[in-house]
């Protein structure tokens, strides 16, 4: 049987890709971000996941406005990264797990989620930066990937409640998978930031900290807000916290935070990091 070893949620700021490429981990600006990751490296070495199911949002690499799925599930043999137009280095392709992808697709549609399946899917920095942070310099990825993309480009976006339920359905689907494998669930993006408009530079530390505090034990707290309210509280791109809610949704039972980090600013963003694990009673 497949088991979920835990959920990791992290920011995916593009500039991190440049900092990795220029080896700035110990630079005073970057150190508070990178210092959050060694405990996760040790944890990953211990739990050795076979697969990463990643909730992320595409930023105009794979999807354009001609066709904009609300929820898209990758079902590709591998996922290539590509030029996003503003110059961070591209990373090697990540192998997929098509059998698990189709299992998730079947289960999700079976639970009335109207998802889009993708046998070809480019992954952008929202996938590659978290992978590079979690498995640095490994020269070949130690996990297979199942990407699940949630639209945060074009409103209306799916509600926080819906994203949480999607995560719960993914959790049930993984638990029902007959093959023995260990799965880590990732949710990337956020926390509070806004790139556009006169409100650019908006950051809300107190909201972020409350969100992180509630996420393991009371995730439904955040699902009470509308998307508009979350944009007001976290910024137009802070809405990426929907990925964190989906990842949290995949965990069942009593959930605890076993590692976290939070730092302002990385680029224009409040950078957050959490590892959550289920304690089976």
């Amino acid at each position: 049987m497949a088991t979920i070893v835990g959920a990791i949620t992290t920011s995916h700021v593009p500039a991190i890709g440049g900092a990795i490429a220029r080896n700035l981990r110990d630079d005073p600006y970057w150190k508070p971000l990178f210092d959050g990751f060694p405990p996760l490296h040790r944890w990953l070495a211990k739990v050795r996941p076979d697969v990463a199911v990643i909730f992320y949002n595409d930023h105009g690499l794979n999807f354009f406005l001609d066709k904009m799925p609300t929820f898209a599930v990758g079902a590709a043999p591998q996922y290539c990264n590509a030029d996003e137009g503003w110059g961070i280095p591209t990373l090697p392709a990540v192998p997929g797990d098509q059998r698990l992808s189709w299992h998730l697709i079947e289960r999700l549609v079976g639970e009335d989620f109207d998802i889009t399946s993708c046998q070809e899917m480019l992954i952008d920095h929202a996938c590659t930066i978290p992978l590079a942070l979690l498995w640095p310099g490994s020269g070949g990825w130690p996990v297979r990937l199942v990407p699940i993309c949630i639209n945060t480009v074009q409103h209306p976006l799916p509600s926080a409640a819906r994203c949480f339920k999607l995560g719960q359905a993914v959790g049930r689907a993984i638990a029902a998978y007959e093959e023995d494998m260990r799965v880590v669930v990732l949710g990337t993006g956020g926390l509070s930031h806004q790139l556009d408009g006169q409100r650019a530079g908006f950051i809300n530390k107190s909201f972020d900290l409350e969100f992180m505090e509630k996420l393991p034990t009371d995730p439904e707290w955040a699902t009470r807000f509308s998307v508009r309210e979350l944009v007001e509280l976290a910024g137009t791109q802070g809405i990426e916290l929907l990925m964190w809610l989906a990842a949290r949704g995949a965990l069942s039972g009593e959930v605890v935070t076993t590692h976290s980090n939070y730092h302002i600013p990385i680029s224009n963003t409040a950078a957050g990091l959490m590892l959550m694990e289920s304690r089976i009673a």
């Binding site: 480009v153 509600s159 556009d196 409100r199 509308s226 998307v227 944009v231």
Partner: peptide, 21 residues
């Protein structure tokens, strides 16, 4: 509109259907 998207957030343009068109 199902959400309350039309209520303005100062300094913010939500990229909705009207903007997308």
């Amino acid at each position: 509109m199902p959400d309350d998207l039309r209520r303005a957030i100062p300094g913010t343009t939500l990229f909705d259907g009207a903007q997308a068109m």
